[in-house]
C-alpha cells in the first residue's frame, strides 16, 4: 500500500480508517483541581468531575505555547471535557470552558481562598465516585466571584465539606453526652470530641454562644444567603480558629492555602 508514513503531520486519518480501535471516550463536567508537568510537554491534570469524583487525566502537549488545551486546563476552571479511556491514565482530548472565574483569579486574596477550596476537595474527595461535593465547590467559587465576604463563604464551605466527608462538627447537641446544648451552661468546642461540648461535659476551648449561632447559620442556611450574616471581628476570628483546628485534626495534614493566607494578612498589616 502506498501512502504517507503514519507519523507524518499530514496524516489525518481517523483511527478507524487506519484499522485501529479508537479509545472509548466519555464526557465530563469538571473543575480543575491541580496540574503537574508530565514528561516533555504534557500535563497531568487532576479533575474534580460532577459524576465521577476525582479523575486524573493527561493533557498531551499542554505545555506547548500553541496548545489549545492549556488555557482551559488551569486550576479553578469549570470545564466540560472529553476523556479517552487509556490503559493507565485517561487522555483529555477536548476541553470547553464554562467559567474561568476571572474576578477570582485577578485578586490574590480571593484566589487564595479558592485554592483553599480546591485543596480541601482534593483531600476529601474520593476517586472515581460521585458525591455531593461538586455543587458545593461550584457554589463556593461562584460566591467568591460574586463578591460575597470570602471569610464567611470559606467557613460555610468548610462546615459543609466536613459534613459531606463525615467529619462535620456537632453543633446542636453535645458531642460527648448527646444532649441538646441549648441553655446548658458555658459551652466549649473540641475537635477531638467532634464538636460542641455542653456545660456539664466541659473539656475543649471556650465557645461563645454568638459564635455557635453563627456557625449553625453558616452550616444550615441556603448557601446563597450566607453573605447576609452579620458577624463582628472577634466572632469571625474565633470561628476561623476553631474550624481550622477541626480541619487540621480530622484531615491530619497542614493546610497550605490557609498558611499562605496568613502570610498575605501579615503583609497587609
Amino acid at each position: 500500500m502506498i501512502g504517507p508514513p503514519s507519523c507524518a503531520p499530514w496524516d489525518t486519518a481517523t483511527p478507524e480508517a487506519k484499522g485501529e480501535t479508537p479509545l472509548p471516550t466519555y464526557n465530563q463536567e469538571a473543575v480543575v483541581l491541580r496540574t503537574r508537568d508530565l514528561g516533555e510537554a504534557d500535563r497531568l491534570v487532576t479533575l474534580f468531575t460532577r459524576e465521577r469524583g476525582k479523575v486524573n487525566g493527561v493533557a498531551r502537549g499542554a505545555r506547548r505555547a500553541a496548545s489549545r488545551l492549556a488555557g482551559s486546563l488551569q486550576p479553578l476552571s469549570h470545564i466540560r471535557c472529553q476523556l479517552a479511556r487509556a490503559r493507565t491514565l485517561d487522555i483529555i482530548t477536548q476541553v470547553e470552558l464554562i467559567e474561568s472565574f476571572p474576578s477570582v483569579r485577578g485578586d490574590l486574596t480571593l484566589v487564595t481562598y479558592a485554592n483553599h477550596f480546591l485543596e480541601l476537595v482534593d483531600v476529601v474527595a474520593p476517586e472515581r465516585e460521585a458525591g455531593d461535593l461538586f455543587p458545593l465547590l461550584l457554589g463556593g467559587l461562584h460566591l467568591l466571584a460574586a463578591g460575597v465576604d470570602p471569610g464567611l463563604v470559606s467557613r460555610a464551605f468548610e462546615l459543609r465539606l466536613l459534613a459531606a466527608a463525615g467529619f462535620g462538627p456537632a453543633l446542636r447537641d453535645c458531642a460527648r453526652c448527646g444532649r441538646p446544648v441549648e441553655e446548658r451552661g458555658d459551652l466549649s468546642f473540641s475537635p477531638g470530641e467532634g464538636g460542641v461540648l455542653c456545660g456539664e461535659c466541659d473539656g475543649g476551648a471556650l465557645l461563645r454562644r454568638s459564635v455557635l449561632a453563627a456557625l449553625i447559620y453558616l452550616q444550615e442556611a441556603d448557601l446563597r444567603q450566607i453573605g447576609r450574616l452579620a458577624v463582628d471581628e472577634r466572632d469571625r476570628g474565633e470561628m476561623e480558629g476553631l474550624l481550622r483546628a477541626h480541619l487540621t485534626y480530622h484531615l491530619d495534614r497542614p493546610l497550605r492555602s490557609l498558611a499562605f493566607l496568613d502570610t498575605l494578612r501579615r503583609g497587609e498589616r
Binding site: 505555547a65 489549545r68 488545551l69 492549556a70 476541553v95 474561568s100
Partner: peptide, 14 residues
C-alpha cells in the same frame, strides 16, 4: 494570540 496563529483555533481564555 500567538504570532502567526489562527483565531479559529485559539482557546477561549487566550
Amino acid at each position: 494570540l500567538p504570532a502567526g496563529g489562527d483565531l479559529e483555533y485559539a482557546d477561549q481564555v487566550t
